[in-house]
């Protein structure tokens, strides 16, 4: 009877340990992917570019998006799946880091899939120059609001 109790539990344990082991075998040494936005725009994305350039060295990230207007910046990023357990901590640290490094007052950081999608779209629009200053500001505000929604 005891054996019957032990087997399923040990099966689960093996399974979990197995997963852990495979994750350690694949270190991620690729740089995060990002798009460098043109600075010859109606709206200067210099700051976003600097942030991306800075985050390029961060091996934890697989991709980075960032858009700013004159007072705030929204940064989104993705990390390797096995590190997602620590996602909240990484997010917090990155926010603090950027705030200190670049002396920006309003830094918003998100890792939400939806926010990444929306910000990606906004980056593309900036690249295509299909948004003007006001639209960008409005859109950025909307995305930040979306990222803070709880229910």
């Amino acid at each position: 009877m005891i054996i019957k109790k032990v087997i399923p539990i040990s099966m689960i344990l093996f399974f979990l340990i197995g997963c852990q082991a495979t994750s350690m075998e694949q270190p991620n040494d690729e740089e995060p992917s990002y798009t460098k936005l043109s600075t010859q725009n109606e709206f200067d994305q210099q700051l976003s570019n600097q942030v991306k350039e800075y985050l390029k060295d961060n091996k934890d990230l697989t991709s980075v998006q960032a858009v700013n207007d004159e007072e705030k910046i929204l940064i989104t990023f993705e990390i390797p799946h096995m590190k997602r357990f620590k996602l909240a901590d990484i997010r917090k640290e990155l926010k603090k880091d950027i705030k200190e490094k670049f002396q920006i007052k309003k830094v918003e950081v998100s890792t939400d899939q939806k926010v990444i999608l929306e910000l990606d779209k906004l980056e593309e629009e900036i690249q295509d120059k299909s948004v003007n200053k006001n639209e960008l500001k409005k859109e950025l505000k909307r995305i930040i609001k979306l990222s803070k929604k709880q229910t």
């Binding site: 997602r84 909240a88 890792t111």
Partner: peptide, 12 residues
């Protein structure tokens, strides 16, 4: 969740 362990699991 009281121990703060469930949110990381949801992220994962």
């Amino acid at each position: 969740d009281g121990l703060g362990l469930y949110e990381p699991l949801i992220d994962f």
